[in-house]
């Protein structure tokens, strides 16, 4: 499995990096930690590049390196990377791999499953390019920033998207699995089983009846999900909510929920202009949300 963790400023990225590395560790995944630097106007891109080369020559950290150094220290402190006297971050080597992508090579013995990279440009474009290049299955990103970013990531990036909002290390989380009769719910169920097994989490299945009392397809899927979870010895319960799906799920989710949803089967054009239920839930909920693809 391959995982991409996108980090921004040090202050806001700790929960994202923490949860991302836990997931990565439990799935034995190879992980890319990416810092995406600010987009530079075409007028100044060469000037900025010359200045950054100059900073490298003067042994001054170019922008973004400080954040990667902080990520490296975090990985060492949590023992994801074994540190010996030969592999200080000061000895980093920046390798310009392709347009806008730079890899930080650390001297000494480091985990070959963790890559630190730096990209520059528009965030959606850069993360899409990273996933297209390395085929990561999950992209993990913080919940802050521009509101439209998450919906664009969900729509355009070819991997599951985990938006880490309001995550706390000390909380005991449970998985909230909203289901309906769509194909996406199958993917969400598989992902929820993997997560629940890895972290020994409880799963709460929720289905929403919009006006009608019951929908056969949804009932059948809920039953199938319960059976599958039981087969995997995962503690679970099911709940039926009434109202509109987005509002009901948003109201039902608590701070200690991790929502796992399937991607919407809607026409991409309709999704782009009018949004979708998973996108709205990811935007409105104040807890971590994973959209499985």
């Amino acid at each position: 499995m391959k995982i991409l963790i996108a980090i921004g400023g040090k202050e806001f990225s700790k929960p994202t990096l923490d949860l991302g590395m836990k997931i990565s560790n439990s799935f034995q995944a190879s992980t890319t930690i990416a810092y995406v630097g600010k987009k530079i106007s075409q007028f100044s891109e060469k000037d900025v590049s010359v200045v950054h080369q100059n900073l490298d020559d003067r042994e001054l950290y170019r922008p973004g390196i400080r954040t990667l150094e902080w990520a490296y220290d975090f990985l060492v402190s949590k023992k994801y990377i074994e540190k010996d006297n030969n592999n200080n971050f000061d000895d980093y080597l920046l390798v310009d791999e392709e347009n806008s992508r730079m890899k930080v090579l650390l001297k000494g013995k480091n985990s070959d499953k963790i890559d630190l990279i730096m990209r520059t440009g528009e965030i959606i474009e850069q993360l899409k390019s990273e996933v297209d290049r390395n085929k990561q299955e999950i992209t993990i990103i913080g919940g802050g920033g521009n509101k439209g970013i998450h919906s664009k990531l969900i729509q355009f990036i070819d991997s599951s998207i985990f938006v880490v909002k309001n995550y706390s290390v000390n909380k005991k989380y449970k998985i909230l699995l909203p289901v309906n009769d769509s194909q996406g719910s199958n993917m969400a169920l598989e992902t929820a089983i993997n997560f629940a097994k890895a972290y020994k989490l409880e799963v709460e299945i929720v289905s929403v009846y919009e006006g009608k009392k019951s929908i056969k397809g949804i009932d059948r899927f809920v039953e199938k999900s319960i059976n599958k979870l039981n087969k995997n010895s995962i503690k679970n319960n099911a709940k039926v909510l009434e109202g509109t799906p987005v509002n009901s799920i948003v109201e039902h989710a608590k701070d200690d929920s991790i929502i796992i949803l399937g991607v919407s089967p809607k026409n991409p054009f309709l999704k782009y202009f009018f949004g979708s239920k998973p996108i709205s839930i990811a935007e409105k909920c104040n807890c971590p949300v994973l959209i499985a693809k």
Binding site: G37, K38, I40, S41, F43, S44, D47, V48, V51, H52, P63, G64, R66
Partner: peptide, 14 residues
């Protein structure tokens, strides 16, 4: 910050 190379370079320092 887009107005001149100087402003953009200053901004790019983060």
């Amino acid at each position: 910050v887009i107005s001149s190379p100087t402003a953009m370079i200053l901004y790019s320092t983060g």
